[in-house]
């Protein structure tokens, strides 16, 4: 547990000092939102219907970018070597990286949501949306951490990570979009509940699978 916290603390401290992950990812996510806004400009009337999709597409694209950073930073500075030499289980490293990715992505989402609400003039500050966002981000981080470690030693890694990541997280994306739509339509919790359950099930399955397989991916 202490090892887990120190990995998390190390990543957070590094991020607070350098801001090398959250800042570029946030700018990228905002750009995607703006590009969608330009692309949809001719059909203003459709915005309410497509806004949840736009939001989650932006978060997904930005997320994959952020995930690819989690391990390249480690590799560039030899940090991964140190982590692997440390007398801790590989699943602890996994959970540490998983949590730090989760926090970075959540920070980006927290910054995007108000901007998004303003640009599209929609009330995104709903508790259902937040619960959905937290669960979906957990799922992204659970799958993404394994694939990011995998693509580290793979040729064409910039393409390989999204190619592996997107098909697997389709259920999470779908649930997030549907849950957000239900909330925007003013439905109560019951409308979003089945999507929340689905995402929670996904999170549990893939966090366990991730912790089990991560050591095999990392092994030299």
């Amino acid at each position: 547990m202490r090892a887990l916290l120190s990995i998390l603390w190390k990543d957070l401290l590094l991020e607070i000092r350098t801001k090398e992950t959250v800042t570029p990812v946030l700018v990228f996510a905002l750009l995607v939102v703006v590009i969608f806004d330009f692309a949809l400009e001719p059909r203003r009337d459709l915005i309410v219907t497509v806004a949840p999709g736009v939001l989650w597409a932006s978060i997904t694209f930005a997320g994959v970018l952020g995930l690819s950073r989690t391990f390249t930073l480690e590799q560039e500075r030899g940090g991964l070597q140190g982590l692997m030499l440390a007398p801790i289980g590989r699943e602890v490293i996994y959970l540490g990286k998983f949590l730090s990715s989760f926090i970075f992505m959540l920070a980006v989402e927290a910054a995007i949501l108000p901007v998004f609400s303003a640009i599209f003039n929609l009330p995104f500050f709903l508790p259902q949306v937040w619960v959905q966002a937290i669960l979906a981000t957990l799922g992204y981080a659970a799958v993404g951490t394994v694939f990011a470690a995998m693509s580290l030693n793979t040729r064409a890694r910039d393409i390989m990570l999204p190619v592996l990541f997107f098909p697997i997280v389709v259920p999470v994306l779908m649930a997030a979009v549907e849950g957000t739509s239900a909330a925007l339509r003013g439905e109560s919790w019951s409308g979003a509940l089945r999507w929340i359950q689905l995402t929670a099930a996904f999170d549990i399955i893939f966090t366990v699978l991730g912790a089990m397989t991560f050591g095999l991916v990392l092994k030299e």
């Binding site: 394994v146 098909p167 697997i168 689905l198 893939f206 699978l209």
Partner: peptide, 12 residues
């Protein structure tokens, strides 16, 4: 690892 994760994902 992908062979396992991918197959588990399909029913979901």
């Amino acid at each position: 690892v992908l062979g396992i994760i991918g197959f588990v994902d399909v029913p979901i």
